[in-house]
Amino acid sequence: MTVGRRWTWSFRARVFGAILALGALAAWGLMVGSPPRWPTDGGWALAGEMLRAALSPTLSPEAGFETAGRGEGSVLSEALGAAQRTVTFALAGCSLALLWGLPLGLMASEVFWRLLGRRPGTCRRCARWLSAALRSIHELLWAVVLLAALGLSNGTAVLAMAIPFAGIFAKVFSELLDESPQSATFALAGAGAGPLGQVCWGLLPAALPDLGAYAVYRLECALRSSAVLGFFGFPTLGYYVAVAFENLHYREMWTHLYVMFVMVAMLEVWSASLRRRWVG
């Protein structure tokens, strides 16, 4: 018994050591290519200006030739409109991802094939590979690809989020389903229930709290992604942040950022209380 204990600790110690050593090696490797730079005076000034602007966000557009046509107080209305679109895109993307992710997750799980009474063969492997392929490419990169293929349209943003999220849903859902308690499905099978009955009355009800909690958590992630997608020209909060940043309007930028923080924080509090209720 002591031997077992000693071994586990030393395995973890080795992992710790490996992480530190690899971190140091990687830092050295990075330094060869791009030596670390100390901030220049200009850098300090710019960063200082950015941080100072955080204390005085503005509701009215800052002076500049590109402000023509933007009225008093229009920053807030821009930000709120963008916030609304950010939420809209996130909801649409997340619901679309859920629609595809749940069946894909079922197909990628082991228990589903057991309930069908088949060996989890090629179908399961295909579902797993598909979900891996979908999620291996970041939503921003999907956005880049879809922009090139489809052009700028709000639907493109929704698709760019829905594709990798469907892959992530599929992976996580399949794991949650396989880990959920399955004793009830055996009882239902003993009562002569078919695969559909076992899935709907035994498997899904037992796993639903976990699935729901994860879906709500993913909605948080979708909101952040949706905001960031604005960097590519979609009319969400990120767009206004990027434009203000490029025009050096840091005070406007902070207004938008604050709206984003508040929105994300509100959703986080809400979703956390939901998740506490469901999975304790």
Partner: peptide, 28 residues
């Protein structure tokens, strides 16, 4: 579906309501 079985460790679905667990006996 002709054979009713009461399991030693119940094997109910804890998240469902009692009525749903009872009705599930007739899924066959």
């Amino acid at each position: 579906s002709q054979i009713g079985f009461v399991f030693q460790n119940f094997r109910l679905v804890p998240q469902l309501r009692v009525i749903q667990n009872v009705l599930s006996g007739r899924l066959g």
